Amino acid sequence: MKLVPLGDRVVLKQCEAEETTKSGIILAGSAQEKPQEAKVVAVGPGGMVDGKEVTMQVKEGDKVIYSKYAGNEVKVDGEEYIIVKQNDILAIVENESN
């Protein structure tokens, strides 16, 4: 099954939570905070949304940071996804190449 978002919606796959801190302390599952970083799985077409023209600025494969309480969590074929509006995405994470 494939999720196809409508309008300005974006389907995200959440990145794994950190299991250890930078200092090496191993966190129990209940102590791990859900990351706000995710990978874009699918992007809606944009277009007219609520009377305004919306151009999609993210694409499949982008790594993004999204608003903490944004979107709806869904489970499809045993996989968990988050569906958010594009304006709930705060930034695209780009790797610096030196």
Rank of each mutant, 00 (worst) to 15 (best):
Y66C: 08
P35M: 09
D62I: 10
K2W: 03
G7Q: 13
S97M: 09
A91Y: 12
Q86V: 06
A42C: 06
G61I: 11
I83W: 00
P45S: 07
A28R: 11
E18T: 04
E18W: 07
L3E: 03
C15T: 11
V58R: 07
I92M: 15
V10P: 11
V10C: 09
D88R: 11
K59L: 06
Y66N: 06
K75T: 13
Y69T: 13
A70P: 08
S30Y: 11
K52N: 10
E96C: 10
T20W: 00
S67H: 14
L12M: 10
V10A: 12
E18M: 09
A17V: 01
Y81T: 01
I26L: 09
A70V: 05
I65R: 15
G46W: 02
I89A: 13
G47H: 10
A38W: 04
I92Q: 15
V58N: 07
V58C: 11
I83A: 01
G61H: 11
K85Q: 14
P45C: 00
V76N: 11
Q36D: 15
K2G: 02
G71A: 06
T21V: 01
G7N: 15
A38P: 09
T20Q: 13
G61E: 13
Q14K: 12
N72K: 12
K22Q: 02
S23M: 04
Y66P: 05
Q14H: 04
V76E: 12
V74H: 03
V84D: 10
A31E: 14
E16W: 02
D62W: 10
V74E: 07
G24A: 05
L6I: 00
M1R: 11
V58M: 09
P45M: 03
G7S: 14
V74D: 03
V76Q: 08
M56I: 01
V76F: 06
I26F: 04
L12G: 06
G71T: 04
K75Y: 00
G78V: 02
L12C: 09
L6S: 01
C15Y: 15
V41Y: 05
E60Y: 08
E37I: 15
L3W: 03
D77Q: 12
P45G: 03
G24M: 08
D62N: 15
N72A: 05
N72F: 03
G71W: 10
A17Y: 01
V54C: 04
N87Q: 08
A31V: 03
V11M: 08
K34Y: 12
K39L: 09
D50G: 01
K13H: 07
E37K: 15
L90E: 15
V41E: 13
E79R: 02
V41C: 03
V49Q: 00
D88H: 14
L3I: 14
D88L: 06
V93I: 15
Y81S: 02
E96M: 14
V43F: 07
V74K: 04
D88S: 15
Y69A: 13
V11P: 02
K39T: 13
